[in-house]
Simulated assay, not measured.
Amino acid sequence: MVENKLWPYVLSLFRVIVGALFVCHGAATLFGVLGGTPGTGGATPAGTWPGWWAALIQFLGGALVVVGLGTRWAALLCSGSMAYAYFTIHQEKAALPIQNGGEAAVMFCWAFLLIALAGPGAWAVDALLTRSDQQAGAREPSNPVTDDIAA
């Protein structure tokens, strides 16, 4: 199989776009910006279940995904929150996402699952930290004698 050299960069752009859209949803609900909470136009009162908590996950989880910090775990949490939203909020209304208004929840769920499985791509804080760890390891060669004593 031929590896696509652009894949890590395309994955990074996909991660940033999906994460930024998720941040916008969270900001709308938490702060009443960008049109606010659907139906009310304002912010959802703090601590309200499940809307405020979902918005907190959207805002913070989306921000972590955008910068690529703890990407896999943040994306998995975001994916799970959208699965929960779909099955508890949308599924009760009708069987299919097009009928119950759950298209965004389904798309976000699967997009974040892809990010969780594929990783952050080339342009991410996680990638910088991994490179730093590898470079630090390269500078400090292991010594089996002293490593066994230190352990």
Rank of each mutant, 00 (worst) to 15 (best):
L6F: 11
L6P: 03
P8Y: 00
L11D: 02
L13R: 02
L13C: 09
R15P: 05
R15H: 05
V16C: 05
G19M: 08
L21D: 03
C24S: 04
G26N: 03
A28E: 02
L30V: 11
L30A: 05
F31E: 01
V33A: 06
V33C: 03
T37F: 12
T37P: 02
G39K: 00
T44A: 15
P45D: 14
P45I: 12
A46C: 04
W49Y: 14
W49R: 04
P50R: 09
W53H: 05
W53Q: 06
A54M: 11
A54W: 01
A55L: 08
L56D: 04
I57R: 01
F59R: 09
L60G: 13
L60E: 07
V65L: 06
V67P: 03
G70L: 10
G70A: 10
G70P: 06
T71F: 04
R72A: 13
W73R: 02
A74M: 08
A74S: 11
A75L: 07
G80T: 02
A83E: 00
F87T: 03
F87V: 08
Q91W: 14
K93R: 15
A95L: 14
P97I: 10
I98E: 10
Q99L: 04
N100V: 04
G101F: 10
G101H: 08
G101L: 11
A104M: 15
A105W: 01
F108L: 14
F108C: 10
F108W: 12
W110M: 12
A111L: 08
F112V: 01
L117G: 08
A118V: 10
G119S: 06
G119H: 07
P120F: 03
P120A: 15
G121S: 12
A122K: 14
A124L: 03
V125M: 06
T130A: 15
T130N: 12
R131N: 04
Q134V: 06
G137M: 06
G137V: 06
G137Q: 11
P141Y: 01
S142L: 14
S142K: 13
D147T: 11
D148E: 09
A151S: 13
